[in-house]
């Protein structure tokens, strides 16, 4: 199913336009910046906090709040892998060249994962390092890399972000437009923000079961769900999106 030539071609496409390269870099830079910003603000709050507030202080959560923004960028990166071909009309040439549509979807899925993973690793690790060292420098508590919570974050957050890039890719296949796919992705991923303003049942649903929340809550160890169930929910959602995208792409006129 995976065709080396088609994969090489996807890499050439990815590296030969500005948007994908700029967005990859921006994702890393934004991760580092938010790591510093949120940690800096949290350290300030800690300095003036009461004793009880200091007990409740979660250094890892404070330092990684920026993930909520970074997830939007990484999903947009996945969007671009397919939508840039629709926008410029090269999808026809690409399909006429590759022939079997499954090969093109497989190659795009793989190139999205292969580019989003190093970007996610760089982003998460930088955010963690800068965030925690900023907390430490300002005399606030921090979580050192040997801590199990830190290890969980450093290993799993990049995987969650990478899967979110596949969510963006699937949306681009379904909607065939950069603007539409980015808007839907952003809206969908930010829905949990409404959780705190929702009545009990809905709040619980959004907070615990909404796919990206289920994953992020489990990464930070705050989920009410068993980890396997939470990750399964999230991964299952990504798989369903991919299958929907593939089914449509396979049968629809290009």
């Amino acid at each position: 199913m995976i065709d080396a030539g088609a994969l090489r071609a996807e890499w050439t496409k990815f590296t030969s336009i500005r948007a994908t390269m700029v967005l990859s870099l921006a994702t890393v830079v934004v991760s580092a910046t938010f790591g510093w910003l949120f940690a800096n603000a949290a350290a300030g709050e800690y300095a003036t906090a009461t004793a009880q507030e200091r007990l409740d202080f979660q250094p890892l959560d404070m330092g990684t709040r920026g993930l909520f923004i970074v997830q939007l960028l990484i999903s947009a990166l996945g969007v671009l892998v397919a939508s840039s071909e629709y926008g410029s009309g090269t999808m026809h040439a690409s399909l006429a060249a590759v022939g079997r549509r499954g090969r093109l979807v497989a190659a795009k899925t793989l190139i999205t994962a292969l580019t989003a993973l190093p970007v996610s690793v760089a982003g998460v690790w930088l955010m963690y390092t800068i965030g925690q060292s900023t907390l430490a420098a300002n005399g606030a508590p921090y979580v050192s890399p040997g801590d199990p919570a830190a290890v969980r974050l450093l290993l799993l957050a990049p995987v969650v972000l990478t899967l979110l890039s596949l969510f963006g890719l699937a949306l681009a296949f379904l909607l065939r437009s950069t603007a539409a796919a980015v808007n839907v992705s952003t809206g969908f991923l930010l829905v949990p923000v409404l959780a705190s303003a929702s009545p009990g049942f809905l709040r619980n649903l959004l907070h615990t079961y909404w796919p990206n929340m289920a994953a992020f809550q489990t990464v930070s160890g705050a989920s009410e769900l068993p980890p396997l169930l939470a990750y399964g929910l999230f991964a299952g959602f990504i798989v369903v999106m991919q299958l929907a995208a593939f089914a449509q792409f396979k049968n629809r006129d290009a």
Partner: peptide, 21 residues
């Protein structure tokens, strides 16, 4: 006209060539 405006002529042909080895 269906070529990505930011892509060079060489890269456009290169990726097509790669798909077919």
């Amino acid at each position: 006209r269906a070529v990505h405006p930011q892509r060079t002529a060489y890269k456009h042909l290169l990726y097509l060539a790669q798909t077919n080895g």
